[in-house]
Structures are given as C-alpha cells and as structure tokens.
C-alpha cells in the first residue's frame, strides 16, 4: 500500500513519462535536450519524471500526458496472448503502481481493467511457482516480474524456506557470538572484573 514512508512509492515517481507541452515555458530549457534556447516550445515532446509531469499538469494544464508505452495496445495484446511470459520489469518495474497513479491523469479509462487483467493472469503463474521453487536458486521467470509481483513471490518463497529450515532442525538456542569471545580474552588476565 502506498504511504509516505514507502520507498517504492517514491522510486515509482521517478519513472519517465512522455508529455507534450501545451504552453511555451521559459527558463526550463534543461528539461528538453533538443532545445536551442533556454525555452521549451509549445508542442514540444519531452520526457519528464512522473512527479514533475503530475505537478505541471495539476498546476495549470501546462502539459498533456501521453499514455506510457507499457499501457499501449501493443503491450495489451502481448499480455492477452500469454501474460506470464511478458517481461514487465524491462518495460516498467513499477508497472502497477504507475498504472494506478496514471489512471486519473489520462483519458484512457480502460487502463484500470487492463491492470487487473494483467495481475490476475500473472498471479496464477506466481502462485504455481512461489511455494514450490527451490530455496537456493531464483527461478528464471522471477526476473520478469515487476516490483509488486516480486514482493508477493518473495514473501511466499521466504516463508516456505524458513519453514523448511526449521523442519530440518538445528540448534534451538544459539550462543551469542560475544559469549565465546569474552572468556578467551579474560582468562589470561585473571578475575579482574570492574
């Protein structure tokens, strides 16, 4: 769940989004690598981080946001064909989080349903591998997961591996490392306690 202290929520806002400037902006030429003067012309297409794009949109409709490539028809077709095989991490590691935030900002209302469809169909794949995968090696498909899916997958894998560790057994009480050391250093000195 997004919250103020969630580092993923902060990192997500760094995702670049392509926007079109609706006004001519002076003094912000650094945003547009192609700008000749210190100005971004009206109609220029610029990649901005989400937080900046969001801010400029809410400010006075200074920009219009294009739908990011990971939510376009091409990706949707791929997801429909075989959701589990699509490498969403390459496209956008914060696929779902960005999608949730971008829905209110763009005109395309079907993104919400697309996200739900993608997660539901990919969830089946995660579930089938999560509890049964080996504890040592990370399965190949795990590199295709987005951050949110990876969290779901890892939580299952970790609880299963800690259960397996417990079942195999081992020392129930662990000796603190400091205990062994103390005696060794003290013995030559004799009982010089303070």
């Amino acid at each position: 769940m997004p919250c103020y202290y969630d580092v993923n929520d902060i990192l997500m806002e760094e995702e670049l989004i392509s926007v079109v400037f609706q006004v001519t902006a002076n003094g912000v030429g650094m945003l547009d690598p192609g700008a000749e003067r210190n100005t971004v012309e009206k109609g220029a297409k610029v990649d901005l981080p989400f937080w900046l794009a969001h801010g400029m949109l809410s400010l006075e409709q200074a920009v219009s946001i294009n739908v990011p490539p990971c939510f376009t028809q091409k990706t949707r077709k791929e997801i429909q064909a075989d959701a589990a095989c699509v490498d969403l991490r390459v496209r956008c590691p914060y696929f779902y989080e960005l999608g949730c935030k971008i829905v209110p900002l763009v005109g395309d209302k079907s993104i919400g349903q697309f996200l739900r469809y993608a997660f539901t169909s990919r969830y089946k794949e995660i579930l089938s591998k999560a509890h049964s995968s080996s504890t040592m090696t990370v399965p190949k498909f795990a590199t295709r997961l987005t951050k949110e899916e990876a969290q779901v997958f890892e939580s299952a894998r970790e609880s299963m591996s800690s259960f397996r560790k417990w079942r195999v057994g081992g020392a129930r009480l662990q000796k603190a490392s400091i205990l062994g050391r103390k005696r060794k250093t003290k013995l030559p000195d004799g009982p010089s306690t303070s």
Binding site: Y96, R116, T120
Partner: peptide, 13 residues
Amino acid sequence: PFMVRTLQAFYKH
C-alpha cells in the same frame, strides 16, 4: 505473507 500481499494487490486493482 503471500496471501496478505496478494489480497492487498487484488483489492487495490
């Protein structure tokens, strides 16, 4: 943990 995270994600979407 798996179930809690899954339900959180499903509820969000």
